[in-house]
Lab assay of single mutants.
Amino acid sequence: LVGSPDACTPLEAPESLMLKISANSTRPARWYTKLGFFPDPRPFPLPLSSLFSDGGNVGCVDVIIQRAYPIQWMEKTSSGLYIFRNEREEEKEAAKYVEAQQKRLEALFTKIQEEFEEHEENTTKPYLPSRALTRQQVRALQDGAELYEAVKNAADPAYLEGYFSEEQLRALNNHRQMLNDKKQAQIQLEIRKAMESAEQKEQGLSRDVTTVWKLRIVSYSKKEKDSVILSIWRPSSDLYSLLTEGKRYRIYHLATSKSKSKSERANIQLAATKKTQYQQLPVSDEILFQIYQPREPLHFSKFLDPDFQPSCSEVDLIGFVVSVVKKTGLAPFVYLSDECYNLLAIKFWIDLNEDIIKPHMLIAASNLQWRPESKSGLLTLFAGDFSVFSASPKEGHFQETFNKMKNTVENIDILCNEAENKLMHILHANDPKWSTPTKDCTSGPYTAQIIPGTGNKLLMSSPNCEIYYQSPLSLCMAKRKSVSTPVSAQMTSKSCKGEKEIDDQKNCKKRR
Rank of each mutant, 00 (worst) to 15 (best):
G80E: 05
R85L: 05
E90D: 07
E91Q: 13
K92E: 12
A94V: 14
E99A: 10
Q101R: 13
Q101K: 14
R104I: 10
L105Q: 08
L108V: 12
I112N: 05
F116C: 09
E121K: 13
R131C: 12
R135S: 13
R139C: 15
L141S: 06
D143V: 06
G144V: 11
G144D: 11
Y148H: 09
Y148C: 08
V151G: 05
A154E: 12
A154V: 14
A155T: 11
D156G: 06
D156E: 14
D156V: 06
D156H: 05
S165G: 09
S165R: 10
L172W: 09
R176T: 14
A185D: 11
I187F: 13
E190K: 13
K193N: 15
A194T: 09
D208H: 15
V209A: 05
V212M: 06
L215W: 05
R216C: 06
R216H: 06
E224K: 13
S231G: 10
R234H: 09
R234C: 11
S241Y: 14
E245K: 02
E245G: 00
G246E: 04
Y249D: 02
L254P: 06
T256I: 15
K258E: 09
S259A: 12
S263C: 09
Q269E: 06
A271P: 03
A272V: 14
T273I: 11
T276I: 05
Q277H: 15
Y278S: 06
Y278C: 10
P282L: 10
P282S: 15
I287V: 07
Y292C: 07
Q293L: 12
R295L: 01
R295W: 00
P297S: 14
S301G: 14
K302E: 11
F303C: 15
P306S: 08
F308V: 11
C312F: 14
C312R: 07
C312G: 15
S313P: 15
S313F: 14
E314D: 11
V315E: 00
D316Y: 01
D316G: 02
L317P: 02
G319V: 03
G319E: 01
G319R: 01
V321F: 01
V322I: 14
V324F: 00
V324A: 06
G329A: 13
A331V: 15
P332L: 03
V334I: 13
Y335C: 08
D338G: 01
D338E: 00
E339K: 10
Y341H: 15
L344R: 03
L344P: 00
I350T: 15
D355G: 12
D355Y: 06
D355N: 15
I356T: 15
A365P: 02
A365E: 02
S366R: 12
S366G: 08
N367I: 01
N367H: 10
N367K: 02
L368F: 02
L368H: 00
L368R: 00
Q369P: 15
Q369R: 15
R371Q: 13
F389S: 02
E395K: 14
G396V: 14
D413G: 13
K422E: 12
L423P: 04
L423R: 05
I426V: 13
L427P: 07
N430K: 12
W434C: 08
